[in-house]
Amino acid sequence: MSNTMFEQRIEALDADSASVAAAFGGDQRVGDHARRGDPRWEQRLLEAQEFMHDVYTGRRGIHHFVEAMSTSDFPLLFADSLDRQLYGAYEATPTTWQNYARAATVNDFREVKRFATSGIRNLLTRVGELAEHPRRSQTEAEYKYAVHKYEAGFALSFEAMINDDLGAFRRLPQDLAQSARDSEEDFVTRLYVGPNGPLSDVYSGPNDNILAGNPPLSREALQAAITKLMKRKDERGNPIQVRAIELVVGTGLSLAANEIINATEYRAVGPNGDVTIIRGNGIGGNLRVNTNYFIDSVASTANADTSWFLFANPNGPRPALEFGRLRGYEAPALYEKIPDMRRLGGAEVPWSFNHGASEKKVQHIYGGSFVDPKMTIASNGTGS
Rank of each mutant, 00 (worst) to 15 (best):
M1N: 14
R9M: 07
A12E: 09
S17H: 15
D27L: 02
R29P: 00
R29T: 05
R29F: 02
G31I: 01
D38K: 10
W41P: 00
R44N: 01
L46F: 13
M52S: 06
H53T: 11
H53L: 12
V55I: 15
H63W: 06
S70A: 06
A79R: 02
S81V: 11
R84T: 14
Q85G: 09
E91W: 06
A92N: 12
T93H: 13
T96G: 02
Q98P: 13
A101F: 07
R102G: 02
A103G: 11
V106L: 04
A116K: 07
L123P: 08
L124E: 09
L124T: 08
T125D: 15
G128T: 12
E129R: 14
L130K: 03
E132K: 15
E132V: 15
R135E: 05
Q138K: 14
K144A: 03
K149W: 09
E151V: 04
A152N: 05
A155V: 10
L156V: 09
N163Q: 01
N163S: 01
N163G: 01
L166F: 00
G167H: 10
A177S: 02
Q178M: 03
D186T: 01
R190V: 01
L191H: 05
V202T: 03
S204E: 07
D208G: 08
G213T: 06
N214T: 10
A221G: 11
L222F: 04
A225R: 04
I226A: 02
L229K: 11
K231P: 07
K231S: 05
R232T: 14
K233A: 08
R236H: 13
I245K: 05
L253F: 07
L255E: 08
A257V: 14
G270L: 13
N272G: 14
G273V: 13
V275P: 11
V275T: 15
I277K: 00
N286D: 01
N290K: 03
F294V: 03
D296K: 06
A299M: 04
A299P: 05
N303K: 04
A304S: 08
S307T: 10
S307M: 03
N313D: 09
G316A: 07
P319K: 04
A320M: 13
A320W: 08
L321P: 13
G324P: 12
Y335F: 15
G345Q: 05
G346M: 00
G346K: 00
P350A: 05
A357D: 04
H364I: 03
V371H: 04
D372C: 08
M375L: 09
G381C: 06
G381R: 07
